[in-house]
Nucleic acid binder design. Structure first.
Lengths: 146, 146
DNA sequence: TTGAAAACCTACTAAACCAGTAGTATTATA
DNA sequence: TATAATACTACTGGTTTAGTAGGTTTTCAA
């Protein structure tokens, strides 16, 4: 039940771009160095985001990336959904329907997973890049520890 | 970001035991057949739960397992915590402290993960086996769909 | 007292996934 | 036209997942 490096790196890259968005296009090399992430690996993650309007690209000399939307209009849920493929905690809950299991009609545990999926979904789509920069989401304040 | 079969099978086994708890000790063979799960694989999962007081065991002829506590006293969170190892969505959040990353002191994304960890934790520890049998947790009712 | 049925224990394995590395092609600008 | 950047594709070593397989020990009942 872990978020992979793909999702975490994508998020760190976008937060980095949000923090430096006054500087125009930023080269991947710069981001990779600032974040301590393999540039080559980031190169593989970027296209996933690039299929949407989250990123703007300039190729060639002095090219790079910048955010295609305001940080307040980009949610963590959207980014993770793209990079992780799916945010649902079990395979039998997919977009728009129940799949993959002939027991689902009468599965007593299915409501657990739907409930879990909902709290995860609701939370992640409530946090924007702007919240992260401001450290200001309502969920961030508490001193909760496992 | 998926719950593995270990956690899901453990939960199904315990729900099965909860539903049949008037019948005393139940053999793993019976549970495996009812649930359509490999008995041999379940054999590997059981010891994890058996280290706690969640299960009572009888070995030998006509032996088996039964719940060691009331279904209302066993939470989904507890079961998944045992079988999945950790419920935290990132490695840098562990029990009681932050580990594994020298960037954590100034990591802007850490509050996201702490917030996510909290909503997952709060939810999973709010659902008991009894809730599952009754289909009666507050989160179960909604018609939420991705 | 012995056979059967159960839990218990350990080792092995095929397939998938993760976290990259490597190399080349394409594009844009000074 | 050299250079610096993105874009694309293939490969890889390590780990995890989801089991199988086989043997040992315990208990009860006939």
């Amino acid at each position: 039940m872990k978020i992979s490096t793909k999702g975490r790196y994508a998020l760190r890259m976008l937060v980095d771009l949000a923090e430096h968005r006054s500087e125009g296009y930023t080269a991947l090399k710069t981001i990779a160095e600032r974040q301590g992430i393999s540039k080559k690996y980031l190169e593989q993650i970027v296209p996933i985001l690039n299929r949407t309007d989250i990123l703007l690209t300039n190729r060639g000399f002095q090219g790079g990336y910048q955010l295609g939307r305001e940080p307040s209009e980009i949610t963590v849920g959207e980014v993770l959904r793209l990079t992780e493929g799916s945010l649902s905690p079990v395979a039998c809950i997919g977009p728009n329907e129940i799949v993959n299991c002939d027991r689902s009609v009468d599965c007593p545990t299915l409501p657990i997973w739907k409930g879990l999926d909902k709290v995860i979904h609701d939370y992640l789509y409530s946090v924007t890049l702007q919240d992260i920069i401001d450290q200001s989401n309502e969920h961030f304040a508490d001193d909760y520890m496992i």
